[in-house]
Write a protein that binds this DNA or RNA. Sequence first.
DNA 1: TGCTATCGGAGTGTTTTGCTCCGAATGAAC
DNA 2: GTTCATTCGGAGCAAAACACTCCGATAGCA
Lengths: 217, 217
Amino acid sequence: MAESQHRSRRGRQAEAERNDRRVLDAAREVFAAHGADATVAEIAARAGVGMGSLYRRYGSKSDLLRQLCTQAMEESIQAAEAALAAPDAWTGLSDYVRACVARGSGALAPLAGSLETTPEMWETSRRGRRLLEHVVARAHSEGVLRSGVTALDVAWLVEFFGRRGPAAPGTEDEAIRRRLLAISLDGLRNRDAGPLPGPAPSAQHYERRWQTEPRTS
Amino acid sequence: MAESQHRSRRGRQAEAERNDRRVLDAAREVFAAHGADATVAEIAARAGVGMGSLYRRYGSKSDLLRQLCTQAMEESIQAAEAALAAPDAWTGLSDYVRACVARGSGALAPLAGSLETTPEMWETSRRGRRLLEHVVARAHSEGVLRSGVTALDVAWLVEFFGRRGPAAPGTEDEAIRRRLLAISLDGLRNRDAGPLPGPAPSAQHYERRWQTEPRTS
DNA sequence: TGCTATCGGAGTGTTTTGCTCCGAATGAAC
DNA sequence: GTTCATTCGGAGCAAAACACTCCGATAGCA
């Protein structure tokens, strides 16, 4: 607190900016670990910031959540672009999955329905999905992806592994997750295993969760 | 409600027994879907039973949870015994995993730490784990399981897929889960893929989550 | 037609939690 | 060194959520 902070342009404003970032990072970790029920107080504590600072920047808990969702979607878009730029399709796809899981993109999915969604968020989400479809299509065309696997299968996989994650780096939880993910990714490769059971996931169902209804309570 | 219920021995007691079962089933579904934060009222509603009936049988929410955990562990023990009796090791192991996931055994794991555990529960848990070790050992000895996979890997896999599950039968959620599980099980088979990353999960860590501490709050 | 055992669910007391408000602390200006 | 503007931190509050109790209604039995 008393440490010098004139590294950036202006002293106090620099602290403000740093706080904003800290809050966002802390929020991602805490929500990932505890779900949407995590308390604002805990986020503030983790960020090493007072409630005042948190609420000055983000009007409400929902706002914070929305910001986080948007950030997660943008990160997954970047990961998809990186996947398309990768030297081979399999490296691209598997790095995409690993990156999304590691960042906990899927951890925000259980929030579906408890959040008012903006049109921009929908647009971002769709853009991410379209890119992922390209990533998957490329993998199929190179013959490295088990046949029958769709982009939504991959999206759901990310979401499954992201649930209640990401585990903090260096923890055993994280190591376990990596092992299981390695197993799943192996199962995803093309080894002419039998066809996948059941119908492919529908986009309708994937999106429906986010359609806002106050709550079923 | 007004339907006749003299199918069993005594009219009113039959209803009582049926209610007990209904509550237990409803509780499993609701906790699986909403986590430990699910409300008692919702469980009662789902069971089609009043709060009074619920509390007469189960003294508290924690009691109910404990009962549920015990039941889940016993079911997984039965599944393990079935696996050992299966004609071949792979059928046994994969049916074990599918059964546990379908019953949502892993859905109760996130409750770890929020529940007072009895010595009997520990004993049951350990027995289940020992059986699973036999199931895994058998699979290795028949050469159908990817090398390096331990019983705890399988246990964690079940837990991962059980999180926030099971989805109600017949829903698309359930179909998706089955697809992803099929992928993971394929990755689990022995195809001399590379070694799994990182160290194997430790029993210490697996058990530590259940050691009761009031709460970190 | 009473009598007993069980049922259902509205009401209650408590805990939790999102959010506000204000005194303290910091840095810039002069 | 003093003053002023800005940002910080966290105690406290009002509202909501929730586990649990209590009692009138109801179903079986004699």
